[in-house]
Amino acid sequence: MKSLIKQLVETPGPSGFEYEIRDVIREAIGDAADELRVDALGSLIAKKGVKTEQGLRVMISGHIDEIGLMVTHVDDRGFLRFTNIGGINPMTCYGGRVLFMDGTRGVIGMDSIESGKTPKLTDLFIDVGATSKEDCSVKVGDVCGFERPFIDLGKRMVAKSMDDRVAAAVAIEVLKRLESTPHELHFVFSTQEEVGLRGATTAAYGVDPDLGFAIDVTRSGDTPRFSPKMATALGDGPAIKVRDSSFIADPRLVDWMIKAAEEAGLPYQLEVLEAGGTDGRAIQLTRGGVPAGCVSIACRYIHSPSEMVDSDDVENAVQLLVKLLSEPIDLK
């Protein structure tokens, strides 16, 4: 699975520009799905299984977009000003390397600002090595992601877009391992999550599920001093979300997930996230309302160029999902 994760995280795909990562995922799914389609906002939807009498139509959503930058101005000397796509912390930008969708590379520089002050995005610029505006191939509206290769630290893995390519890896693996299901499953590889759950909103309307859940990363409360006020820790198992700031998981889904984890002897942890949201919210609020939940992977340094997850958490998430989706769902 590590090589799949490496391939997924190293493919660029800022929100709205998911075509390359979508192709990689489609290739990786191969014939593990019964049917593949792409909706109007670019989400890839993989259908598997036939709804039996005890079955439901289930949507499982993990977003394939990542945070990135978009060029707003090219100055006479070929320096590029930019704006954020999704939540970018300017602190993690200076000196970073970026990769444009056409393969152009660049580095991030900074205006001289008062020392000790944190830069704003407007204090930063991209230098693609152009000698003048005419020499610069990049135009206003062009898009880049951060470039930071995957590193394998043994149990832990680090890359720029574990949020949320690790979910894509989990979903692909579940599609492959799942031998039978009483359900009609729709695995949605959703777009534009980082700018407001947009892809999952339209995909959920299209799928019209009976039940759904998101797979996403969540913060991890196990780093030194002033770590996030959270019970989650790397390696403690997939996290079953109870709530975040935009969503309260259906308690019946929380219980269903806990019961499945305990039956399968899989480690799990419970997640209460004070700020943040996932595709779970978009699913829950679709049409007349949908019972919804979320399975999370604890992740350190989210939205930095070095997001860290635990490989056992990823494997256990796959096993939990296979268990959840192989059996009839009896919500109590």
């Binding site: 909706d39 109007a40 909103t201 339209t202 995909a203 299209g206």
Partner: peptide, 9 residues
């Protein structure tokens, strides 16, 4: 508009 129903380019 673009988020309406199943999505509108």
């Amino acid at each position: 508009i673009h988020k309406t129903r199943a999505g509108i380019p």
